[in-house]
């Protein structure tokens, strides 16, 4: 299998200048590879560094040292830890999406457009984008009367589905998902798992954070366990 991501000796330290220069070691000596088309799960207790690791890959967090080598569609290798901001924006726009635990949207944009705009940004017409979005909402059993409503007032589970739909809709090469099934009922949970597996089948590599045994068992090819910011031995499914 081709290597897609190679993480080499990644460290993340938060330096809190406004708290008497307090330092928090969030990740230490983290190294691992991600292959094309695999689903890699990150497990570990709350606070073990899973989300920090994911955010470092997406460059929402700046790595303190180490490398995050990413092989893009054209075959060039980019170190996401040190690449220019424009380079990272390009990768985000065309290849990599991130689905956080919380939905952040522009106020007063209907749910359907929140998702459809992600496709429009990649050159799709609005009508076509809305059509694809409706399909995805249907599969996620998001009630139809919510489609043209504003997500700010949605329940946690409803917001989560909008969030997942938005991250998956553009069929990215790499998908980073943080707790995709946390506040969902079993049926919707399975729909999400099914959709993620379909993405994998078309070649998407997925890095997944979950505390949910069911999701983990159904989806992951491999899992990595984090403890206090350190990686424990890899487990193969």
């Amino acid at each position: 299998m081709t290597k897609l991501l190679e993480i080499v000796d990644l460290q993340k330290r938060f330096e809190l200048h406004i708290l008497n220069e307090k330092e928090i070691e969030a990740l230490r000596q983290v190294s691992f590879d991600v292959h094309e088309g695999e689903i890699l799960a990150l497990t570990g207790k709350s606070g073990s560094g899973k989300s920090t690791l994911m955010k470092c890959i997406y460059r929402t967090y700046l790595a303190s040292s180490g490398q995050i080598l990413y092989r893009d569609r054209t075959g060039s290798v980019i170190d996401l830890a040190s690449a220019s901001e424009h380079e990272v924006l390009r990768i985000r726009k065309t290849e990599m999406t991130y689905c956080s635990q919380f939905l952040q949207v522009i106020p007063r944009v209907p749910a359907i457009d929140v998702v459809a705009f992600a496709l429009v940004a990649r050159g799709c017409t609005l009508d076509e984008a809305r059509r694809v979005t409706s399909e995805s909402f249907e599969r996620l059993s998001l009630p139809k009367e919510l489609w043209d409503a504003y997500p700010a007032t949605f329940s946690g589970g409803e917001q989560q589905r909008v969030n997942i739909a938005r991250a998956m809709i553009s069929r990215p090469r790499v998908l980073l998902v943080d707790e995709p099934t946390a506040s969902l009922d079993l049926k919707t949970k399975d729909a999400v798992i099914e959709m993620l597996i379909e993405l994998k089948k078309i070649g998407t590599s997925i890095i997944l954070i979950t505390h949910d045994e069911h999701t983990l068992a159904m989806m992951s090819d491999r899992s990595l366990h984090l403890e206090n910011g350190l990686l424990k031995d890899a487990v193969y499914a």
Binding site: F14, E15, L16, H17, I18, K55, R59, T60, Y61, L62, E85, V88, L89
Partner: peptide, 21 residues
């Protein structure tokens, strides 16, 4: 300076940390 989500979630400078917090 940096990506907007990085500035807001992982500010490096004390002044930005103060702003964000």
């Amino acid at each position: 300076q940096g990506l907007t989500d990085q500035i807001l979630q992982d500010p490096q400078h004390g002044y930005t940390q103060l702003l964000v917090s």
